[in-house]
């Protein structure tokens, strides 16, 4: 296996709040890794540190064996694309032109035919072709979320950082978008994805590996069935649950009625 991302001793604080503590993690090539944890565990903070939206206090981030701290946003955006949960927009733009922004790191000023084709293909891949010339700011939350995912795909990075990519999507689209992300990571020679997600069952079904983030550290890392144990879930989320193997394929976590008192 080839290592694509290597994070060593990452620390980040918001003032007195020490969010990430000496965090270490690796992402391999063609790997889909999910990060789960409670609200405020530092999932988004971790992703933003990796994309240098936030500056870590300490620690090394290396990608393809290169130190990312010397990268400017332009060069970084050719390697990594961070997908926020949602974006606010005061100005109206066609969906096509929003997705076209994914090509911005690769072009000088002029759009080449290849760039247009990449955008068109991406829109078709995500079944957004009917939205291509609708106004981005007039779409629903879920539609907008799919569009900014499309923008990241058209950017063609080696590593995707998704922050809650399914949070605004309906049941069917949650599965569809994860399938498509999965396919992208599996098929393309050098792509990987790191996904912050709350839905444990979606994470369990689609991830190669799950990281359980707890109090700024990684409590457990491994295949879904290794990480999603009754004990781990009780410790991190403070809920009792049952873990089942579904169809012999993937595990499901079923939360029981009774909520255990935390601390």
């Amino acid at each position: 296996m080839t290592k694509i991302l290597e994070v060593r001793d990452l620390n980040f604080s918001w003032g007195d709040n020490h969010v990430l503590k000496n965090l270490n993690l690796d992402v391999q090539k063609n790997e889909l890794v999910s990060i789960i944890g409670i609200n405020g565990a530092g999932k988004s903070t971790l992703l933003k540190c990796l994309n240098r939206i936030l500056k870590p206090d300490l620690g090394k981030i290396r990608m393809w064996d290169k130190d990312l701290s010397n990268f400017d946003p332009l060069n970084l955006s050719k390697l990594i694309s961070y997908v926020p949960q949602s974006i606010r927009s005061n100005f109206s733009m066609d969906v096509f032109d929003v997705v076209l922004l994914g090509r911005r790191p690769h072009i000088n000023w002029r759009i080449a035919e290849d760039d247009r084709e990449k955008v068109s293909q991406t829109l078709r891949y995500l079944e957004l072709e009917d939205f291509a010339f609708r106004k981005f700011d007039r779409l629903s939350g879920g539609e907008r979320q799919q569009v900014i995912i499309a923008k990241a795909i058209s950017q063609d990075p080696d590593l995707f950082l998704f922050d809650e990519p399914t949070s605004d999507l309906d049941l069917r689209n949650q599965i569809e978008i994860m399938k498509k992300i999965r396919k992208l990571v599996e098929n393309d020679s050098s792509k990987s994805a790191l996904i912050a997600i709350h839905d444990i069952n979606i994470a369990a079904r689609f991830s190669d590996r799950i990281l359980l983030l707890h109090e700024g550290e990684i409590l457990a890392s491994g295949a879904p069935n290794e990480v999603l144990t009754v004990e781990n879930i009780a410790q991190v989320f403070g809920v009792t649950c049952d873990v089942q193997l579904w169809n012999g394929e993937y595990i499901r976590v079923i939360v029981e009625d009774e909520i255990k008192q935390t601390k």
């Binding site: 933003k48 939206i53 400017d72 946003p73 050719k78 927009s89 100005f91 922004l101 911005r104 900014i148």
Partner: peptide
């Protein structure tokens, strides 16, 4: 010259712009 940067900034804000390669 700044057209693309302005597109990213105006439509998506700062975090979106960074992930599009804009400072």
């Amino acid at each position: 010259k700044w057209s693309w940067d302005l597109n990213a900034l105006s439509v998506g804000g700062d975090e979106f712009a960074i992930s599009t390669g804009v400072n």
